[in-house]
Lab assay of single mutants.
Amino acid sequence: NRTSFTQEQIEALEKEFERTHYPDVFARERLAAKIDLPEARIQVWFSNRRAKWRR
């Protein structure tokens, strides 16, 4: 089942994506704690966001 992201979560994710397309585990963990999502969801979001960026 899909995770629905809040506007705040999307903004935080997009901001980090501007900084780096490949956040390391520490950056992902920090973001996970900040926006209250599992680190695995963040990893998947970045993977999908990079795919979207390449299109």
Rank of each mutant, 00 (worst) to 15 (best):
N1M: 05
N1A: 06
N1H: 15
N1I: 11
N1F: 10
N1D: 15
N1E: 15
N1R: 04
N1L: 04
R2F: 14
R2E: 07
R2W: 11
R2K: 09
R2D: 12
R2N: 15
R2Q: 14
T3K: 07
T3L: 11
T3G: 13
T3N: 15
T3Q: 07
T3I: 12
S4G: 09
S4P: 11
S4K: 12
S4M: 14
S4I: 10
S4A: 08
S4F: 07
S4W: 13
S4V: 11
F5K: 02
F5D: 03
F5A: 06
F5Q: 05
F5S: 03
F5N: 02
T6R: 07
T6P: 03
T6L: 05
T6C: 04
T6D: 06
T6F: 03
Q7R: 12
Q7N: 12
Q7H: 10
Q7G: 11
Q7V: 11
Q7W: 06
Q7F: 10
E8A: 13
E8H: 06
E8Q: 15
E8G: 10
E8N: 03
Q9R: 03
Q9W: 00
Q9A: 06
Q9N: 04
Q9S: 03
Q9E: 06
Q9M: 06
Q9L: 00
Q9V: 03
I10F: 02
I10T: 14
I10K: 03
I10N: 05
E11P: 02
E11Y: 11
E11L: 12
E11G: 10
E11Q: 09
E11T: 10
A12C: 11
A12S: 10
A12Q: 15
A12Y: 04
A12L: 10
A12T: 14
A12E: 15
A12V: 10
L13N: 00
L13G: 00
E14T: 02
E14I: 01
E14A: 03
E14L: 03
E14N: 04
E14K: 00
E14F: 02
E14H: 02
K15W: 08
K15G: 11
K15M: 09
K15C: 10
K15I: 13
K15H: 11
K15Q: 07
K15L: 11
E16G: 02
E16D: 03
E16W: 02
E16Y: 04
E16N: 04
E16S: 07
F17K: 00
F17R: 01
F17N: 00
F17C: 01
F17P: 01
F17W: 14
E18L: 07
E18H: 04
E18F: 08
E18M: 08
E18Q: 07
E18A: 11
E18C: 09
R19I: 09
R19E: 11
R19P: 00
R19A: 06
T20W: 06
T20G: 10
T20P: 00
T20R: 04
T20V: 07
T20F: 04
H21N: 04
H21I: 08
H21T: 06
H21W: 09
H21G: 04
H21A: 11
H21C: 04
H21M: 14
Y22T: 10
Y22S: 06
Y22H: 07
Y22F: 11
Y22D: 07
Y22Q: 04
Y22V: 05
Y22K: 07
Y22G: 01
Y22I: 03
P23C: 03
P23V: 05
P23W: 00
P23I: 04
D24T: 04
D24K: 00
D24V: 01
D24L: 02
D24G: 08
D24R: 00
D24M: 02
D24Y: 01
D24H: 01
V25R: 12
V25H: 14
V25W: 12
V25C: 10
V25N: 14
V25P: 08
F26I: 12
F26D: 15
F26C: 14
F26R: 14
F26W: 09
F26H: 14
F26Y: 11
A27I: 03
A27S: 15
A27R: 11
R28V: 15
R28S: 05
R28M: 13
R28E: 04
R28N: 03
E29A: 13
E29Q: 13
E29K: 07
E29I: 04
E29Y: 07
R30T: 05
R30C: 10
R30E: 13
R30P: 02
R30H: 12
R30Q: 05
R30I: 11
L31N: 00
L31H: 01
L31S: 00
L31D: 00
A32C: 04
A32K: 09
A32G: 11
A33S: 13
A33I: 12
A33D: 02
A33Q: 15
A33L: 11
A33N: 09
A33R: 11
K34P: 03
K34V: 14
K34E: 09
K34Q: 15
K34A: 07
K34S: 13
K34N: 04
K34I: 03
K34H: 04
I35R: 02
I35D: 02
I35A: 07
I35Y: 13
I35T: 15
D36T: 03
D36Y: 06
D36I: 03
D36E: 13
D36K: 06
D36N: 11
D36L: 12
D36G: 11
L37H: 02
L37M: 08
L37A: 09
L37K: 02
P38M: 07
P38W: 04
E39A: 09
E39N: 05
E39S: 09
E39M: 10
E39I: 10
E39Q: 10
A40F: 08
A40K: 10
A40R: 10
A40P: 09
A40S: 15
A40Y: 11
A40N: 07
A40Q: 12
A40H: 07
A40I: 10
R41M: 15
R41L: 14
I42N: 00
I42L: 08
I42H: 02
Q43Y: 08
Q43R: 13
Q43F: 07
Q43C: 08
Q43D: 06
Q43T: 09
Q43A: 13
V44A: 12
V44E: 13
V44S: 09
V44I: 15
V44F: 13
W45C: 02
W45E: 01
W45A: 00
W45L: 00
W45M: 00
W45S: 02
W45N: 00
F46D: 01
F46G: 00
F46Q: 00
F46A: 00
F46V: 00
F46P: 00
F46H: 02
F46N: 00
S47V: 14
S47R: 09
S47M: 12
S47K: 12
S47Y: 09
S47T: 10
S47A: 14
S47E: 15
N48S: 11
N48C: 10
N48P: 01
N48M: 14
N48E: 15
N48R: 07
N48A: 13
N48F: 09
R49V: 02
R49M: 07
R49I: 01
R49L: 02
R49T: 08
R49W: 02
R49S: 07
R49N: 04
R49F: 02
R50L: 06
R50S: 02
R50E: 05
R50Y: 03
R50M: 03
R50K: 02
R50A: 04
A51Y: 08
A51H: 07
A51L: 07
A51E: 12
A51P: 02
A51T: 05
A51K: 08
K52T: 14
K52Q: 12
K52D: 11
W53E: 14
W53Y: 15
W53R: 07
W53D: 13
W53G: 07
W53N: 10
R54Y: 07
R54F: 12
R54A: 14
R54M: 14
R54E: 07
R55G: 04
R55I: 12
R55M: 05
R55S: 14
R55T: 10
R55A: 15
R55W: 05
R55K: 07
R55Q: 08
